[in-house]
């Protein structure tokens, strides 16, 4: 009886995680790095809009446009100043570096914008709607649509666009790619710029829903979880994984107990991973001897 509502609400909640997870997959497929600061870049995207509007008397949509450009530049700087110098270090070190980047963003936002939450404008209406007894709001549905659109766009990018295929080639075999004339450093930079813009878009969509505060970046943990669940290299996996996690969480809260919702969710995740270690859509990694 509650099932349709659980499904819909779970899907809209999960779409939030999926949108962040897509960013993880993008960076991972492009560079093999897990960007633990991605959640903070998501928050940064929304904060940039607020910041721009604080100092420039321009309306919301131009501010968004400027914020996306700023976010892309920021991603470029991160890649050049932090990731490029350490690209030969072990992966774990690079991951911790992304963590430090996230920390810098979070504390920087806290210092400049203050520790309290900021209001943020909804892009689509949050007014409650109801259809056949199932409640929703267009603002939440927008997230689902956005996740699907981003997934679609990235899919097309990797499968059909020259730059996308170049990215995949670079990631699999940098030497080979560069022998083929692919400008590897430029490719890597463009991945970071793309992911940063994607994160900013996610932030702008999510901020009114999850509340804009320096802590908003914590959503990165859920995004990471979902990306792993989906197989970490699979874009549809990230989206499906997110939707599944959202539904599992909601169902666990209702059918088990809200107090142990988190534990139940993680237990189920562990079960899934043990049964299917490559995640839902990932390919089983074949180790070359």
């Amino acid at each position: 009886m509650l099932l349709p509502q659980i499904l819909l609400s779970g899907i809209t909640a999960g779409a939030v995680y999926a949108l962040v997870a897509l960013g993880f997959v993008l960076i991972y497929r492009g560079t093999h790095v897990i960007h633990f600061g991605l959640g903070e870049q998501v928050a940064l995207g929304a904060y940039l809009v607020v910041l721009i509007q604080l100092y420039l008397p321009i309306p919301f949509w131009p501010a968004i446009f400027l914020a996306l450009i700023a976010a892309g530049i920021f991603g470029f700087i991160i890649e050049r100043a932090v990731m490029r110098p350490i690209k030969m270090q072990p992966i774990l070190v690079q991951i911790i570096a992304t963590l430090a980047v996230g920390l810098a963003i979070r504390e920087g936002l806290r210092a400049v914008m203050g520790p309290q939450a900021w209001p943020f404008q909804f892009l689509l209406s949050p007014v409650p709607q109801s259809f056949m007894g199932v409640h929703f709001a267009w603002a939440n549905i927008a997230i689902v649509i956005a996740a699907l659109l981003v997934m679609g766009a990235l899919y097309v990018f990797f499968a059909h666009m020259k730059l996308g295929r170049a990215v995949l080639a670079t990631c699999q075999n940098p030497t080979g790619a560069s022998l083929m004339g692919i400008p590897v450093p430029t490719i890597v930079s463009s991945i970071w710029v793309m992911a940063s813009v994607l994160a900013a878009i996610a932030g702008i969509l999510l901020a009114p829903i999850v509340t804009l505060s320096p802590e908003m970046g914590l959503i990165g943990i859920k995004g990471f979880t979902v990306a792993v669940l989906g197989g970490f290299t699979s874009l549809p996996g990230a989206v499906v994984g997110g939707l599944i996690l959202g539904v599992i969480e909601t169902a666990a809260g209702i059918y088990v107990s809200t107090a142990v919702k988190d534990a139940t969710t993680y237990l189920l995740l562990v079960l899934i991973i043990i049964v299917r270690p490559q995640g839902l859509f990932g390919a089983l990694a074949v180790k070359k001897v």
Binding site: I86, A104, R106, G108
Partner: peptide, 16 residues
């Protein structure tokens, strides 16, 4: 209040 940012930047410097 800027201590957190400075600390994070220091961490990055140490890693790099």
């Amino acid at each position: 209040a800027y201590k957190g940012v400075v600390w994070a930047v220091l961490l990055l410097l140490m890693i790099v």
